[in-house]
């Protein structure tokens, strides 16, 4: 009886913490949603009302019309898609070299690659800007997309860890038949890495979609802006129209949220694998 009481008490305590903490973590989202549906007068009610009255759906229309939203969405999509393709192709090729092929210098290069992850982006930022300037690439999407085609250290590491778990027996038959390595990579390794690739695709999407520094440095023609930059200039133009700004922020966040809810499994897997083994 005593044991049962302490069990119940423990549960109650856990739920109390979970609910209180959960409310604190969720409130900013609820507040954002509530603000995005308020009229401009309701914004400055004290104390603020949680349920807008009347509900002003028009804010979302205003948000999309207030700046070249579709143009920026297309720009962001192009850059994001190119980064996803580039990262997946190049990182898997390099990971194959580290996981399955023996070549002189492999170990040393692996250490060098891991070390590059520690390098602050600020160190390479200025020379890269100068390089792209000389190539005439400023104000194009090239500086934001081309580098992704040369592999990303963290994903190479992640894929290598996965590739090493693929048993040698899987490829023995193909090796005996004299299949070229590329065929083994293409026909055996890639089809087996669906889940890992999905994780990498998702993380690349999130990173590129929300990237701010890159577009800020390389794009200055407003026609070329991404959503992140557009949102920023939107804020500069309409600093106090919080309802429209929150509507706009929600629209920009939405793809990440949808992606998370549809692909939760890959998220958790990706974080724990890159985290724990990293």
């Amino acid at each position: 009886m005593n044991l049962r009481a302490s069990f119940l008490f423990h549960r109650l305590f856990v739920y109390l913490l979970l609910v209180c903490g959960g409310v604190v973590f969720m409130i900013p989202f609820v507040w954002m949603l509530s603000t995005s549906l308020k009229g401009s007068a309701g914004l400055f009610d004290i104390p603020p009302k949680w349920i807008p009255e009347p509900v002003q759906w028009r804010n979302y229309v205003d948000a999309v019309l207030a700046f070249p939203f579709w143009n920026y969405t297309v720009n962001t999509l192009i850059i994001t898609a190119a980064n996803m393709a580039g990262t997946m192709i190049s990182s898997s090729l390099v990971a194959y070299a580290f996981a399955r092929l023996r070549w002189p210098g492999r170990g040393a290069w692996f250490v060098v690659m891991l070390a590059t992850m520690m390098l602050p982006g600020q160190v390479t930022m200025i020379p890269m800007f100068i390089l792209f300037k000389h190539l005439g690439w400023l104000n194009t999407f090239l500086p934001l997309t081309v580098p992704s085609f040369f592999g990303s250290a963290i994903y190479i590491f992640f894929l290598r860890q996965f590739f090493m778990t693929i048993p040698r027996e899987f490829t023995e038959a193909a090796k005996i038949d004299g299949a070229p390595e590329f065929m083994i990579y293409w026909r055996i390794f890639l089809p087996l890495s669906g889940a890992t690739m999905a994780t990498i695709a998702i993380f690349t999407f999130m990173g590129t979609w929300n990237d701010f520094m890159g577009p800020l440095i390389y794009l200055n023609d407003p026609d070329k802006f991404t959503l992140a930059l557009g949102l920023r200039s939107f804020q500069q133009a309409f600093g106090t129209r919080w309802n429209v700004m929150m509507a706009c922020s929600i629209i920009v966040m939405l793809p990440s949220l949808i992606l998370f809810f549809t692909c939760q499994r890959y998220f958790i897997e990706g974080i724990t694998l890159t985290g724990i083994k990293g």
Binding site: F25, M26, P28, F29, W31, M32, M206, W209, N210, D211, F212, A228, L231, R232, Q235, M245, M246, C248, S249, I250, V252, M253, S256, L257, F260, F267
Partner: peptide
């Protein structure tokens, strides 16, 4: 976990 899914300018504005 949800708050760490979103990032960037939108979160800054929020």
């Amino acid at each position: 976990y949800l708050p760490s899914v979103v990032s960037g300018v939108a979160v800054a504005l929020l």
